[in-house]
Amino acid sequence: MNRRLLLAIPFGVAAVGGVGFYSILRAMQSGQFDPRGVPSQLIDKPLPEFVLPGFGRAEVVARKAPVVINFFASWCVPCIEEAPVLAALQKSGVPIWGIAYKDKQAATDLFLKRRGNPYAQLARDEDGRVGIEWGVTGVPETYLIDAQGIVRWRFTGPLSNNAARGLSQMMGRT
């Protein structure tokens, strides 16, 4: 009896490990879990103070309505992948404000002309300092700011259709 129990231990460990790995891989596939992701320090905190050519914290807070803020750049390949998702999101009535991260104005303009411009407002963070204030680790990165100017959600990498759907639902609630 005892020996049989001992034999079951390796199988038990393997089963627990298998279930764990399976759930991690599932979450990675659906975009809910990113092993390289750095958790945002801004979640449930007020937006940091910033002023940029285009808009700053004051303009975001003055809206008194939730808004999606998207960091992007013309040199960023995943941003091209993200462009149609953002366009669809904008068409569905979600206000999106863009911050061009470490990008030259002419390059940004060309990018928006070519890939479409989903942004209601556009700001420029040419030296990337505001990105660091927000804890941005790369582009694209997307934030949801609620009506009180509190950061509620962040997504790193190109928005998937799944994530965009979740975002629209959250917009309805906040």
Binding site: V38, P39, S40, Q41, I132, E133, W134, G135, T137
Partner: peptide, 9 residues
């Protein structure tokens, strides 16, 4: 740094 990027930094 930790304020912006968390303990992970």
């Amino acid at each position: 740094m930790v304020k912006r990027y968390g303990d992970f930094v």
